[in-house]
Design a protein around this nucleic acid. Structure first.
Lengths: 340, 340
DNA sequence: TTCCCGATGACAACCGATTGCCAAATGTTG
DNA sequence: CAACATTTGGCAATCGGTTGTCATCGGGAA
């Protein structure tokens, strides 16, 4: 922890170290990267000099000459959607632990921004983690051929993915509502381009038929609390007694709107959300929702990506990982009201 | 939008363009960057070739040779704190508009991580926006001497800053509570290293003395909802009828704890938060809080930083910007309960 | 026609690392 | 002591651009 020379404000390079030790720059490079390639004593001298000069490698130069950038791009459709907070934190922590830098990009729910970001990232990152991709199967597959990709919540054959298993939790939610006496239920759909929403609806429709209850699809609704107002009105108008929302943002927005309209939750209307985001536990009433280990999903995605990047270690890297989901029952669901 | 040659999976470089046009690589570089430096017809040819080859410059190489990276680091203490969502979105949008890339770093509320991130970013970014810095005045000033910096919510002479004016809103909050009959009030302090918390307390204490009411400081509390439990217990134990929390996370946590303990809000205890984060409007009861244009704060910070980076344009760039704050009254504050 | 000057484009050095290749130094063996 | 195997360390090319310097070309003025 030596004092660095006062006034030396330009970061040290391997050349400074080389000059200080009287060796060539390449020797310094090897000493610091290839352990056994250089005499142990020379290496010690070089490391001491590096520490004294407070040396840190220039990542740009490193990237240029080696082809590896040490960065991973993380694409999210909307940074302000709380669902992604835990995901981002998960990827961030795991990437940092592996010595990688995270490049976070907000694609603004646009497939074009997503595509151009990927093209850009292709040169400035070693790999990409893309969440809830809006791209077509073909486009995603084509992108995956050019750069290592792991998708989150997007299932395309040939693209490694981490999928949060909300479809299976959907049946749990349905059974929960049925056990409370509900028979007329609505699904408040997410964006039509959202594969998650489609898969979830398919699972729900199948389960509903199996159990002989009436479940209809309403929407689509944008995944924002503001959309909750329209969703609430649609649900009320359709005459259902319970609804399952695409995500917690819509569900929470519905709670607000229902309260404004004087419709009691859960007495007059039960609401189930999805994701268990920040706020789901303290909204009014607290939201019954489908919870999953989101941060862990981020970590797993990073692990899968790093396995692609360094195929040397463990042999078989899985190409698909399913994260379990369970229903968390809170105050927004209750017995159907016998006397309306 | 010409079809790129099938199989050409390596991104095009200026050399490819040069070869295609029969000119030197440097001419291509100039044609694409220095407008008047190259014959307009040559330039047109080069631009056509660039479009045909689907050329995008390699940012690493650009950074290495020019010294400018085209990236700006944004340091936040905790990505999962909703306060930063809007801030991050503000910086992201403004940076993208100016053609810069945002490097988001979570410093984990640690001054050491913050310092090392800055050192790292010094080489990989053109400037840094640091929020709620945990560094000492000297350290921050020293860092600002090495790399362009704009601080958010950290006021140090010599470091350009965007400051959200919560201290002045604090008096508004106090007057609001006084007008409701409260005379015994607590301030639930944030981390001791938080300058915002200190400034806010100073303003509050001065205003309290001025108005002749009893305001005591409790804490410190970590800026998380979990800390709200301890904060609530401390407030109840101290016998106050109202409290002003360092931020909404603590306030929301208090609401939950008070509800658990059967203490009614606002009948038995009024609670004021700060920041108007996601969730403040739909918690139970909705939170009275101090709101500010957070996203705009992010944009302003970016503008100030870019003004530092390109001093050419508008002459006098301000070195300090104060964002207004106002009290948003919701359901968590009410008249003091005469008969306890 | 001659001279001069500005516009233009090419050459080459350089940014800070990595890495292939080879020479020097070292140690081992016959 | 010579021949050989094995480290070890240095030279130089390379990544993809930027930028200083200079030669060339053309046109306008004297």
């Amino acid at each position: 922890m030596a004092m660095q020379a006062a006034g030396t404000d330009r970061p040290a390079t391997i050349h400074d170290i080389a000059a200080l030790c009287g060796v060539a720059a390449s020797t310094v490079s090897r000493a610091l990267s290839t352990p056994g390639r250089v005499n142990i004593r020379t290496r010690a001298r070089i490391e001491a000099a590096a520490a004294e000069l407070n040396y840190t490698p220039n990542s740009q130069a490193k990237a240029l000459s080696s082809g590896r950038t040490g960065a991973v791009g993380v694409l999210v459709p909307d940074i302000t959607n709380p669902f992604y907070f835990d995901l981002i934190r998960g990827t961030q922590l795991q990437l940092k632990a592996a010595g990688y830098t995270q490049l976070l990009v907000d694609t603004e729910e646009s497939d074009e921004v997503e595509a151009s970001s990927m093209e850009q990232l292709r040169k400035s990152a070693d790999g990409i983690i893309v969440t809830a991709s809006r791209l077509s199967d073909e486009a995603l597959l084509a992108a995956a051929a050019k750069v290592p990709i792991v998708a989150i919540n997007r299932d395309v054959v040939g693209v490694p993915a981490v999928v949060i298993d909300t479809p299976s939790a959907t049946s749990q939610a349905l059974d929960h509502l049925i056990s409370l006496g509900h028979t007329r239920i609505a699904y408040m759909a997410g964006p039509i381009t959202s594969q998650s929403s489609t898969l979830r609806w398919n699972a729900l429709a199948a389960a509903a038929e199996d159990r002989g209850v009436d479940v209809r699809r309403l929407g689509p609704f944008a995944p924002k609390t503001q959309s909750g107002a329209a969703a609430a009105d649609a649900a009320v108008h359709s005459g259902v007694t319970a609804c399952i929302a695409f995500n917690d943002l819509i569900a929470i927005g519905m709670l607000q709107r229902l309260r404004e309209r004087g419709i009691r939750v859960p007495e007059d209307m039960s609401v189930v959300g999805c994701d268990d985001i920040f706020g789901a536990d303290f909204c009014n009433p607290p939201l019954t929702t489908m919870a999953s280990p989101i941060e862990q999903a981020g970590r797993v995605a990073v692990s899968m990506l790093l396995a692609q990047l360094n195929p040397l270690a463990g042999g078989g890297s899985r190409s698909r990982s399913l994260m379990p989901t369970h229903l968390t029952v809170r105050g927004s669901t209750g017995p159907v009201n016998a006397a309306p």
